[in-house]
């Protein structure tokens, strides 16, 4: 069962769209959680990784989502973002 779930997750992510965002203003590890939670609220977002040392958020999604939605979500969490890779 675990392997089926893993395979499904991999298939889903392999077809997902990815965007990398530079996030400014994160000063502590908990800031990464605030950014992550805000991005995950967007409909269609499957997975989010945020790293404090690189100041990057990587968003995996499976719908057409305008970049401004990501930037807005980051702003709502109290930070600023700029898409650096689509």
């Amino acid at each position: 069962m675990r392997y089926i779930f893993l395979a499904l997750t991999l298939i889903t992510l392999s077809f997902a769209k990815v965007v990398t965002i530079h996030v400014e203003g994160m000063t502590c590890p908990l800031c990464t959680m605030a950014v992550k939670k805000s991005l995950k609220k967007i409909d269609g977002v499957k997975k989010v990784k945020v790293r404090l040392n690189t100041k990057k958020a990587t968003v995996y999604f499976d719908k057409n989502i305008d970049n401004q939605k990501f930037i807005k979500a980051i702003k709502e969490a109290g930070y600023s973002g700029k898409v650096i890779k689509k």
Partner: peptide, 8 residues
């Protein structure tokens, strides 16, 4: 080393 660093 944690995944998130540096710690404040």
């Amino acid at each position: 080393k944690p995944e998130q660093f540096p710690i404040n």
